Computed example of a mutant assay.
Amino acid sequence: MSWMTEYVRPKLRGLLKREVPDNLWSNCAGCGQMVLNKDLERTRKVCPHCGHHMRALVGERLAWTFDDGAFTRIELPKVPVDPLGFRDQKRYTDRLKDARAKTHLDESMAVAHGKIGGHDAVVAVMAFEFMAGTMGAALGEAFLTAARLAVLQKAPLIVFTASGGARMQEGMVSLMQMPRTTIGVQMLREAGVPYIVVLTNPTTGGVTASFAMLGDVQIAEPDALIGFAGPRVIQDTVRETLPEGFQRSEYLLDHGMIDLIASRGELPEVLGRLIGLLNVRNLPVAQAA
């Protein structure tokens, strides 16, 4: 081999080679395009090529929603851990520890209050990153805490939903959160406090069958999967081909299940305008019986 092959070419390759950080790019699930993470920060995790809304974390939701990203997180009540002593491939307690270490969250819902469009608001955000946003006793307590705070402040409650449904490790305790959260919604209505739901991808299972579909105003992000059972389960059950886009935001809007679809970029303005129209501060608070 010549000196060009043995010496010059390896040197050139070394000069041209660049270390590319693992967190520099993200792959869009909608169109398959590679997108710079810096661009995704600017667009709030919306693909600039196809408009696909990527999954957002709790902290991002709160920062995007409140004015200037300023809010106060609420400490939530503690609940009994592992009431059934559940174990499958791992102990439930170990799964909780792993989820908390990975996400830096205590549970699958976070609650905060602050200003949206200059108006007071209480916001509860479901954390899909925490065990797929599954609903257990802790989420039920978090929702009721958010509802009580909204009544106390006479501020609307806004809930961002993202869930795989009930948490099987808590069995019947998890299923009981469906009526408990429904009672929380009723408490808001009796107090004359607006309840706004923002449905994000995915919102399924017992969450959809309870508080997620009881909003005074139902908003959804574009192309979000919203339903009780998954499309494949339904299709196998009814043994019929489902319509195109079944259980997606646009289909639900066309069939009257939601009120409007709003992209992330316009959502804070939409929420602020809704709160202003509802003018919650001027509404009388119902006296407890």
Rank of each mutant, 00 (worst) to 15 (best):
Q33M: 06
A121R: 01
K38A: 13
A137G: 04
H113Y: 08
G256M: 09
T203M: 14
I158S: 07
S2R: 09
A191V: 10
R95F: 02
A162P: 05
V35E: 03
G136A: 12
A155P: 08
A224W: 03
S163F: 07
L277Y: 15
L84A: 11
A150N: 04
E141S: 09
G256Q: 06
T204Y: 05
L277S: 10
K45C: 07
K78I: 00
G69A: 03
H119Y: 10
C50S: 01
P231T: 07
Q235I: 14
L62K: 03
D67S: 03
Y251D: 13
A209F: 09
E250F: 10
D254V: 15
L157T: 02
K38W: 05
Q177A: 07
W3K: 05
W3G: 01
I196T: 01
E19Q: 08
I74Q: 10
L157I: 02
L62V: 08
A289P: 15
E6V: 11
H113G: 02
D22Q: 12
P10M: 05
G192K: 13
I74V: 10
R55L: 11
L252V: 12
E240H: 12
K17E: 12
G59A: 01
K38C: 05
G205Q: 04
P268M: 06
P80L: 06
D236M: 11
Y251M: 09
R281N: 14
A146M: 07
T5S: 04
P48F: 02
K45L: 12
N201D: 13
A56Q: 11
P284L: 11
G215N: 07
H49M: 09
W64G: 00
L277K: 11
G117L: 01
H53I: 00
H52D: 02
L267D: 03
I275M: 05
R44E: 09
G272N: 05
I275L: 03
A124D: 06
R87L: 11
V81Q: 03
T200H: 00
F228C: 15
V217G: 05
L274N: 04
G184R: 14
A162L: 08
T93I: 01
L40T: 02
L105S: 05
Q33G: 06
P21R: 08
P83Y: 07
V58L: 14
C50Y: 08
I74K: 10
P83D: 08
I158H: 05
M135E: 14
T72W: 01
A224E: 14
P284F: 13
I158L: 12
V173H: 14
P231A: 10
E269Q: 11
A155F: 04
L242W: 08
P284Y: 12
V35I: 02
G136Y: 00
R44K: 12
H53L: 02
I234L: 14
V159Q: 02
G206V: 04
K38H: 05
R239T: 14
T208G: 15
G118R: 01
S263K: 14
A229K: 09
G140L: 13
R248S: 04
D106G: 01
T65A: 03
H104D: 00
L267S: 03
I219A: 12
I261R: 13
G276N: 15
E221R: 10
V280C: 14
L242A: 10
S249Y: 13
K17C: 06
R239W: 10
S108D: 12
I74D: 07
T181W: 06
I183M: 02
F128I: 07
A147Q: 03
M176Y: 13
T72D: 01
T103E: 09
E221G: 07
